[in-house]
Design a protein around this nucleic acid. Structure first.
Lengths: 350, 350
DNA sequence: TTGACAATTTAAAACGTTATAAGCCTCCCG
DNA sequence: CGGGAGGCTTATAACGTTTTAAATTGTCAA
């Protein structure tokens, strides 16, 4: 199978290259082929004979050849880079690490790298996106915390740049997204509280500008209206409120008349803050009040087993985001790039 | 100052380029200069006249020129990439997001990008580093959670590849690092507990293989010996123990004889787990026992103000890591690339 | 025997940048 | 007036890949 005496046409038989790394030329010299042939063989072009293709692949594997990203990028214009836009919100505990881990998982075995593009490259996050598009710093973009008429989405749709976001929008043009079914989360959470016999329910909403705030509110109100139960929506606090402020708010509210006894917390920190606040007011969890919380780690359910939890798997979401963005990049007309992930309900029986 | 009638020597006066992006040639055409000249002018080579340099810079700014990373990388061999090795440990809440944010902050305004290299590119984390070095996928490496004879550090020292780690090692060859002064943390934490009149102190240690476990133990033991106070070191649990397991362990221990009444928790989750466990055993924080905890967010002190906290600013650490790695890259002989960050003690007076 | 054709392989050019080595002036000195 | 010497600019060649077009085979019908 090996052809040792094939005529070597390369004028330079020195295999070790200046920078030491094997290149196409290294393989070409070894195989006695032209660089072009090696290139096409490696990309499995049908014009290259099967035997040659296999031989080239074998040599490449043996000498540990890896195509030079810079050269490929320069030639093809493709960067093989996925950028993730971090906004400065990231102080919130453990938020995007899981998502990034998931994305990285999806990118494993592909030639894509994941680069972190913090929004403070520019003054606003939209400018960060603009900058990346204009200068072709990536082939695709991922970001989170969408708004109904998200400026980033608008820009990306206009320019036709591949992207996927975690969260939906209200644009009429469909676009790729992965989202968590927050309607169902809030609906089931409220029903759980009602089933437990709570008399007045409430919910710590995300900041109003975010799309999923509406979804949660909608799910909450649907369950509340179905049951005809009392409720209230705090205006002074949201999920981004510092834990200490939220805690004080809750404890003050508990001391006032008609305090709610059922809480929906779409985040672990808020659940802990509610527990602290209620505790300050002398209320005992599972006795005086109940909480249903969304958790993205196993932290809350382990620390506070009396909290009913509904899980959101952000690592899985990240994996979907990565996978679907790659699809979008390779096929601009791809369908089915919208995914709504179902809540994982962990209520104990009874 | 502008020279409108300078002879245009380029044969191709078409400024708009195929891919639309301005290149050196675009500037060269506009300025009536050679590409080489533009290149050197932009890098402020002294051989180029000041006037030309300024003119070229101005044009570049006006048309929004940004050098092509791929071409630069191909030509110079420099990738302009910093890679951060994530290990799968990242489930732990909020760990590396702050560090990454800090690194990104340090890389802002430079030409460096931050890429996330999860260790599962390969089976072990050392292989991930090997892969990156071998294939020149980055100019420098950042990683965390070092061990005394860390395999990654050994490899990087041997190959001379630029890196910096969060945490120290015990190699005789000095290398760049940023670390938190965990000795002082543990020492001051123990002294605080002792000052509060606690009779028996304990500490939840990090996994033993990590360098900073020794530092914490050393600080702890120093304070304990100075004061001649009772202590114990739990063997069955560590900082990576799931919160629920730790909680059960603490509560069981509290029910047994000679239980400690002073806890050092070098992590927020462990502090919350200890509080839960002690609460299960009917013990009340600040009455029956005290905790001094390390916190990397403001979460714990806001939720549990009775916990004494010592702060570790991971964003700042990340910024130092980024900044110092860039120094190391540009000057292999740079000194002073070792930084020990002091604990920020937040004990209330009294 | 000669094209024609398919099946392979190849040479050459290009992507945008930088490094090397020249080039072209102008000025000054002998 | 010849010849450097500076001061500034430039042409050329690479980096490693892919693309376009062309060349080299062998095969087979006319």
């Amino acid at each position: 199978m090996t052809e040792p005496s094939r005529p070597q046409r390369g004028e330079n038989l020195d295999i070790t290259h200046k920078r030491g790394k094997p290149t196409l030329r290294t393989i070409a010299t070894i195989a006695g082929l032209a660089v072009t042939t090696v290139s096409r063989a490696l990309s499995d072009a049908p014009q290259i004979s099967l035997e040659t293709r296999q031989r080239v692949h074998r040599i490449a594997r043996e000498i540990g050849y890896l195509p030079d990203r810079a050269a490929q990028r320069l030639k093809t214009g493709r960067t093989n880079v996925i950028a993730i836009l971090l906004d400065s919100h990231e102080e919130v505990v453990g938020f995007s690490t899981s998502i990034m881990y998931g994305i990285a998982k999806a990118l494993k075995e592909t030639s894509y790298h994941l680069v972190v593009a913090p929004n403070f490259l520019s003054t606003t996050d939209i400018e960060a996106a603009e900058y990346i598009i204009r200068n072709h710093l990536a082939d695709g973009l991922i970001f989170t915390r969408t708004e109904p008429l998200d400026a980033r989405v608008r820009l990306l749709l206009e320019t036709g740049f591949p992207f996927i976001c975690h969260g939906r929008t209200e644009f009429s043009t469909p676009h790729p997204y992965v989202d968590y079914d927050n309607f169902t989360f809030a609906y089931e959470a409220a029903r759980r509280l009602i089933a437990k016999g709570r008399k007045k329910v409430t919910v710590i909403l995300p900041p109003k500008r975010l799309t999923f705030c509406q979804h949660i509110l909608h799910g909450f109100m649907t369950a509340v209206r179905e049951a005809g139960i009392a409720y209230e929506i705090p205006e002074a606090v949201d999920l981004d409120t510092p834990a200490g402020v939220l805690r004080d708010f809750i404890s003050n509210r508990a001391d006032a008349p008609d305090a709610p006894d059922g809480f929906i917390c779409p985040g672990e920190v808020s659940a802990l803050a509610v527990i602290s606040g209620m505790s300050d007011a002398g209320r005992i969890l599972a006795v005086d009040y109940d909480i249903v919380a969304k958790e993205t780690s196993r932290l809350l359910s382990q620390l506070q087993p009396k909290v009913d939890t509904i899980h959101e798997d952000l690592t899985a979401a990240g994996e979907d985001l990565g996978r679907m963005l790659l699809q979008r990049i390779s096929d601009p007309d791809a369908e089915d790039l919208q995914l709504l992930l179902p809540p994982q309900i962990n209520f104990p029986v009874g």
